[in-house]
Write a protein that binds this DNA or RNA. Structure first.
Length: 876
RNA sequence: GCCCGCGUGGUGAAAUGGUAGACACAGGGGACUUAAAAUCCCUAGGCCGCAAGGCCGUGCCGGUUCAAGUCCGGCCGCGGGCACCA
């Protein structure tokens, strides 16, 4: 065996795996299957360390499960539609399709050297007609089932990307991709009826035991179920057709604190009243005040008294004014509320501004009614002792009070309990070119006509121009104009394309039969679904994962997935980011200048870290006077400021290119490093020293293997039993750690075993057996070096295809154990006892220990606790 | 504002309520070398002590327990999610 040279062995083993077809997923009914999937990448053109960490985790699981006898499906694809391709076309010319395919080729070439156990024969790209044509077919099925519909709606309009965004894609009032302030516009759009599944998507979260609690909570909050009362106010002086106004409240127990009713500027009554110039002016002001979602959030509350009155449902003589208010949303509840300034901060602000009455209904015992008028009482206030004025709510507060108030309303016939959800339907129309075309045609006489299935896919035309903003499909000379599929008359194709989140909502199902002429094939989907382990970033906790859960249900409803697949991901793991320090200097105008890690040198001298610009050596005489050296560096502008670790980003230049690491150390080192130290759900900081350490470790394993290879075959050695024990314990520890996604602990155990083997002097067969087992245990993390060791030490076949080792249970327990002896909870002595020594004998032995006798100093023992195999505690 | 999570050496981190700091990085000391690199060995929470050893120690305060990093209550700090949602 020569020097450890990954650049030689890694390509060699990758070729060997390919030739053996080692990673081709086989539908084998005689074996249990295991489907492991990492969230597929957007083909930006470059892989980054986050990808390396994500795919290495999936690969560890895939290789491990495969060794355990499962038929493994571990595919890879490309989330290939979306804005960046169009932006590139607009900025640099070229075509989105060419740009995307070029990026896919580049990224694939970067992923291959990682040695991932991916079944590349199942590769797919969402921008290929073969894929999106099937998506169109499903769209038509969903249309037929009423799961897709069209409506005019206020939408989130991204003025930079010039497209509509889903609610989920608006973050802090800004477009999730462009970062531009989002505006509100009314457009006719396509929607998925995800709201039909609100309750189910919520309640099924309880069954997702192997999902992070955090993700389930985020989804539950997003779906946002609330229980409240819906009731109608009778109006006084309202236009015809508005005899009643429906309102919804989650706090019906505060009904006696009502002081006004308010409707949204978009409410039908508000629109009716717009004939009045004053109302029209007010509504215009609401719109003018802020078209952007960001402005709306900070806008001042404004209102307009319509002059209309409504009767309080519990007292017909009690009339409340009806206001139009800018803070009432038309698309939640009924678009109308009753205001209770006594207990709602927002209503309180509004009432204070417009001089409306304020009345608290929850009072502390002993407080007079008058004291709490004109005051705001938080509902959680501990002062609450009884409820004023409303027998229906009794004296209960919180959920009981709400339930009692709803019951009262239902018994007395003025309202019903209603469950509402925050989740809205998913708007999927995008006014973009580079997406899946929506397969319908607009006909003057037939209306919206679905494209015939035999005409699918509706392919994107290639000849488009990006010289003008907006959607190139809209101005395409021929693609747009087609005959109506129903009557044949000249008609127009839908030019909107689908949100790219549609593409990623079912790719996991498509992987089960990626080339089929239907979206899925029942037998394949039945065998491979569900995804047993899904791995990706927490940033998809809501959007992608919620959409996929909806889509799996819709696919079941349209016959494309079996019932068992409606929750498509059995287990979810959300991995942390790869972070790095940021290196910063300041230019002569005081602006920050960032530097790549490879452009600085880090020194640690006398416990001080000094980062210097450039690849430099410290002058030897300066090392004795570090402060002088630092001053000299600062004068030359070479002293670099270190900003604490953050997510790798191009703008901060704190990126490490995986290709450079692989070129320098090999893929095994990169894989080993990203799995070490930090638990996988936490962020891991990339450090040059850590990467070097990983490489040194693998080199040490290599040279240990070399040493064992040169041992004479008849070498007797010593300590074989102890070595076998260490090996068994490592098998046990690594197996349990991988099973529980604690890769850092698996690696710690492997360091331990390496240290044992490196220092051991066992017989040749025992040493060979030990290092072969080490190679196999390492192989999910470092598959290449493992293969080299495996073959060098006479392992049969490929290490990748060898079975996972089993620990002999007899070797896992020691015959004698060292037990600490505590006196009053403080450790004072140790005794060595046989593993199965009975408690009373252990007690005797502990009390006979000379250290114990010394510490007891003759005090009487009150109690003695023996935890077998663990600890002894003497209480005096 | 509402909902969640997390605080352990110089650093990344381990620890079914049972010897806190496994494993590793950085550090210190030594061997080898003309020297350096590489490699190997030792050391390594803090304080006191020549040592043997002792005391303190998991953000802070209290509680439960023979025993608390771990369980409970209350603070402080950091991070994340949601938010005119009626």
């Amino acid at each position: 065996m020569s020097r450890y040279d990954p650049s030689v062995i890694e390509p060699r083993w990758q070729k060997a795996w390919d030739e053996a077809g080692a990673f081709v997923a086989r539908h084998d009914p005689s074996r249990p299957k295991y489907y492991v999937l990492e969230m597929f990448p957007y083909p930006s053109g470059r892989i980054h360390m986050g990808h390396v960490r994500n795919y290495t985790m999936g690969d560890v699981v895939a290789r491990y499960k495969s060794s355990c006898g499962f038929s493994v499906l571990h595919p890879m694809g490309w989330d290939a539609f979306g804005m960046p391709a169009e932006n590139a076309a607009m900025e640099r010319g070229g075509h989105p399709r060419d740009w995307t395919h070029g990026n896919i080729a580049d990224m694939k070439a970067q992923m291959k050297p990682l040695g991932l156990s991916i079944d590349w024969s199942r590769e797919l790209a969402t921008c290929d007609p073969e894929y999106y044509g099937q998506q169109q077919a499903m769209f038509l099925d969903m249309l037929e089932k009423g799961l897709v519909y069209r409506k005019a709606a206020m939408v989130n309009w991204d003025p930079v990307d010039m497209t509509v965004l889903a609610n989920e894609q608006v973050i802090d009032g800004k477009g999730w991709r462009s970062g531009a302030a989002v505006e509100r516009r009314e457009l006719v759009q396509w929607f998925f009826k995800i709201s039909d599944y609100s309750e189910e998507l919520l309640s099924a979260l309880d069954g997702l035991k192997d999902w992070p609690e955090k993700v389930r909570l985020m989804q539950a909050n997003w779906i946002g179920r609330s229980r409240g009362l819906q009731f109608a106010f009778d109006t006084v002086g309202a236009p015809q057709g508005f005899e009643r106004i429906e309102v919804y409240t989650t706090r019906p127990d505060t009904l006696m604190g009502a002081s006004f009713a308010a409707i949204s500027p978009d409410h039908p009554l508000a629109k009716e009243l717009e004939k009045d110039p004053a109302v029209a002016a007010f509504i215009a002001e609401c719109r003018r005040g802020g078209t952007s979602a960001e402005e709306i959030e900070t806008a001042e509350k404004i209102g307009h008294d319509t002059g209309i009155r409504v009767r309080h449902p519990l007292d017909p003589d009690w009339e409340l004014p009806v206001w139009i208010a800018n803070f009432i949303l038309m698309d939640y509840g009924t678009g109308a509320i009753f205001g209770c300034p006594g207990h709602d901060q927002r209503d309180f602000d509004f009432a204070t501004k417009y001089g409306l009455p304020i009345k608290a209904v929850f009072l502390a015992e002993g407080d007079g009614d008058a004291e709490l008028d004109a005051a705001f009482v938080p509902l959680k206030s501990e002062k609450v002792r009884y409820v004023r004025g409303f027998a229906g709510a009794g004296v209960q507060t919180g959920d009981e009070g709400v339930a009692a108030a709803i019951a009262h309303a239902e018994q007395n016939g003025y309202g019903q309990g209603v469950t509402k959800y925050r989740l809205r339907d998913w708007g999927l129309s995008r006014q973009r070119y580079w997406g899946c075309p929506i397969p319908v045609v607009h006909c003057a006489s037939c209306g919206v006509v679905p494209e015939k299935k035999e005409n699918l896919p509706v392919e994107l035309p290639y000849d488009v121009s990006f010289d003008k903003p907006g959607n190139p499909l809209d101005r395409h000379p021929t693609w747009r104009d087609v005959p109506c599929p129903a009557c044949g008359a000249p008609a127009r194709r839908e030019t909107d394309t689908m949100d790219t989140f549609v593409d990623s909502s079912w790719y996991f199902a498509r992987f089960t039969s990626p080339r089929a002429a239907t979206p899925t094939v029942a037998a394949e989907a039945d065998y491979w679904m569900n995804v047993d382990q899904y791995i990706g970033g927490i940033e998809h906790a809501i959007l992608h994962l919620l959409y996929s859960r909806f889509f799996a249900r819709a696919m079941h409803a349209t016959g494309h997935l079996p019932a068992k697949a409606i929750e498509p991901f059995n287990a979810l793991f959300t991995q942390g980011m790869v972070t790095h320090e940021i290196y910063k200097t300041t230019d002569d105008k005081g602006r920050p200048v960032y530097h790549l890690p490879e452009d600085v040198t880090v020194f640690t001298i006398a416990d001080r870290r000094i980062v210097v610009l450039g690849n430099v050596e410290p002058p030897l005489d300066m090392v004795d006077d570090v402060d002088a050296w630092i001053r000299a560096l600062a004068d030359e502008g070479l002293l670099v400021e270190v900003v604490p670790s953050a997510k790798m980003s191009k703008s901060k230049k704190n990126v490490v290119d995986p290709m450079n690491i692989i070129a320098q150390f090999g893929a095994d080192t990169a894989r080993w490093f990203v799995m070490s130290d930090s638990p996988p759900e936490r962020d891991v900081e990339w450090t040059a020293s850590g990467a070097e350490a990983a490489f040194k470790h693998l080199s040490r394993v290599w040279s240990t293997c070399d040493r064992i290879g040169q041992m004479p075959a008849d070498h007797k050695g010593e300590g074989d039993a102890e070595l076998a024990r260490s090996v068994a314990k490592a098998i046990d520890e690594v197996t349990r750690s991988i099973d529980s996604f604690a890769f850092n602990k698996a690696i710690a155990a492997l360091y331990g075993l390496t240290n044992v083997i490196a220092r051991a002097n066992g017989s040749t067969p025992a040493m060979k057996e030990a290092i072969r087992t080490l190679a196999k245990l390492m192989s999910p993390m470092t598959p290449h070096i493992s293969e080299s060791i495996w073959s060098y030490q006479g392992g049969a076949g490929l290490c990748a295809q060898a079975p996972w080792p089993k620990a002999d249970p007899a070797l896992l327990v020691d015959d004698t154990v060292t037990l600490p002896v505590q006196i009053n909870g403080k450790r004072r002595a140790e005794i060595s006892v046989a593993r199965d020594m009975p408690g009373p004998e252990v007690e005797k032995l502990a009390l006979a220990n000379e250290d114990v006798i010394k510490f007891l100093a003759g005090q009487p023992v009150k109690k003695i606790i023996v935890v077998p195999g663990r600890i002894i505690n003497v209480v005096v």
